[in-house]
Design a protein around this nucleic acid. Structure first.
Lengths: 196, 196
DNA sequence: CTATTATGAACGAACGATCATTCGAAACAA
DNA sequence: TTGTTTCGAATGATCGTTCGTTCATAATAG
């Protein structure tokens, strides 16, 4: 059995394709991006894309799942390094803000792409594992008495809604300043809205 | 110049096409909807669509602008019938919640379609007139001392972010109960977060 | 070692399907 | 009649996908 050529790292082509797809999908959208576009940007051939992925949709799915996995890893890290709901939720917002600045395209695609239009099988972002984990943080904070008793969905929406809205504004170019500059102000409002 | 046929009201065909487009765009998305699809759903011919609209994009634009106009009218009404920022903003959220229940597809298309992918000319929703009006409400509330002094964008995001997040959840089917049932709870959190 | 064969990654022209759009004719109103 | 609206088959362009081929490398034989 022949091994892949030694002059390129294994999985590197896949990575090139996924990175190119992320760039094009966020810039022009999934449906405005052709497979030849992806091949050109990734500097590989069309055939190579179909060698590594089942079809165009499969590229988008691999990208989406990979981003979701990364996000979930960040949340697990936060859960492991912070004890209270307050600390955890603040860390979540700080992380989201930083990620938006450092990986703007990833955040854009993960949070605001209309996945159901090109990934019919996947569940809506709202009910993805990361968002469920964030609601868990809130639920536990309510159980511990840190957060007022109320519907978990309402509490989560109010706690994270402001931050997510600001991320949208930033991604749309409506907010000029880096998000971390607004962390303290947003957090004060967010926590005040649901704190016991 | 011939007047339109007497057996159909003037502008009715246009309306049929726009309604069909709204239905299909929210159900499958703009790019998964073909012009023949629109013709079939609107019960008109393909040629008729091109008689009333320049092209497919023009249908989407007419739909979008019409929805935006309706939203702005609602906001103007609120501005005229409520004096304080507190009353105005609460009325805005109540209106958004009601509209989501009564015109789910309209809200979905207006707030969460990726317009820039098929309406390259239009500005992002964030910087549309309705959203600017909502920020104006907040700014005036800050000038009047009702709302704590802070960045207007941050305050607006925190005040409306929770409600908008809940609307997303509702549209995604993650929230089972009608939004108006949650109005009091959401409003208490929202106002608490920025009230002076 | 060298020569030969086997493997599968990479390629891109070509294919078939689908789409937005056009246009000439028919239908209808005035 | 004349001008407008409606129709849907035809057009041309574009897209996702396929597939025969090339070629570098690994495995094997001598």
């Amino acid at each position: 059995m022949a091994r892949p050529p030694a002059n390129v790292a294994p999985g590197q082509i896949r990575e090139q394709i996924i990175v190119a797809a992320l760039h094009l999908f966020t810039q022009r959208g999934y449906f405005n991006t052709s497979v030849p576009d992806m091949a050109r940007t990734a500097q590989v051939s069309v055939g190579s894309i179909y060698h590594h992925f089942k079809d165009k949709e499969d590229v988008a799915r691999a990208l989406y799942l990979s981003l979701m996995e990364g996000m979930q890893a960040e949340l697990s890290l936060i859960a492991a390094t912070h004890a209270t709901a307050r600390d955890r939720c603040r860390a979540v917002i700080a992380m989201l803000f930083q990620l938006t600045e450092s990986s703007r395209e990833a955040m854009d695609f993960m949070l605001y792409a209309k996945h159901k239009e090109f990934l019919p099988g996947e569940r809506p972002v709202c009910s993805s594992l990361p968002f469920e984990t964030m609601r868990d943080f809130v639920q536990q904070g309510m159980d511990q008495g840190e957060i007022r008793r109320m519907d978990v969905m309402v509490a989560s929406a109010c706690l994270f809604g402001g931050a997510l809205r600001l991320i949208t504004a930033r991604l749309d170019g409506v907010l000029a300043e880096p998000l971390p500059d607004r962390l303290d102000a947003v957090w004060e409002c967010a926590w005040r809205s649901i704190a016991a």
